[in-house]
Design a protein around this nucleic acid. Structure first.
Lengths: 116, 116
DNA sequence: CAAATTACTTTGACAAACACAGTAATTTGT
DNA sequence: ACAAATTACTGTGTTTGTCAAAGTAATTTG
């Protein structure tokens, strides 16, 4: 992984919700999707991922069910709820907004007026 | 404040280094600069700011000295070091890079290939 | 002279992320 | 047939950054 975890912090839930908004999935697959969506630049620690699942389920943004795999290991599937979709949309809007503010904060010029 | 703290997390040091790269400053003024640079959308908690100062000083990215104020409250000034400037530049590059990755992660399409 | 502002500091709490370890099944290579 | 690798989920304990709240102390404003 190349990019600092703290830059991703605050996006974890949104990342998961984005992936689940495109279809039900389970931990291992979500993990691989994250690696793939980031062009192998980022991978979420397993513990972090499952912690996020539990957090999102607790607040009703996702639901889970055990898949009935005839072969392969058992899988717990996660499904986004309508509340989760709302949250996802809100987060995307916030990001568009925050991106500019962050850019100002880390590279903007401090004008004299700021001292008044 | 309008934007979530977790979106800023990971940028705090960079924000401070950016401000100090434009001239020595002290806590209260940095705090106001942040509010101003963000168009009043974000303000950093005082405790967080001073914690960051201590952290940055400890790792040698800033240095501090007491101002000799003839009037007004005493002020501890902070100065960016060359190591701090290097870190700032690296962080700005990382941000350019991370911005795109985050965008992919939170709104990119998961392709079938991701499941393989 | 009280209240507001400037300015810095400490303490204690919390939440997210992580490393690490563990459980358990299945698939692959030899 | 068996060991190794992979798939898949879970739990524990620690670290880190941020924050709220409170405190200290000076100066300026009404």
């Amino acid at each position: 992984m190349d990019i600092s975890k703290d830059l991703i912090r605050g996006h974890t839930d949104t990342i998961i919700l984005n992936i689940l908004s495109q279809g039900d999935s389970y931990g291992y697959q979500v993990s691989k999707s994250i690696r793939s969506l980031s062009d192998n630049q980022y991978s979420l620690n397993e513990a972090t991922l499952y912690t996020a699942f539990r957090r999102l389920e607790k607040i009703g943004e996702i639901e889970s069910y055990w898949g009935d795999e005839t072969q392969g290991a058992r899988r717990k599937y996660y499904k986004i709820t309508s509340s989760g979709r709302q949250h996802l949309e809100a987060a995307l809007n916030e990001w568009q907004f925050a991106k500019n503010i962050i850019s100002h904060l880390i590279s903007g010029e401090v004008t004299e007026g700021d001292n008044l």
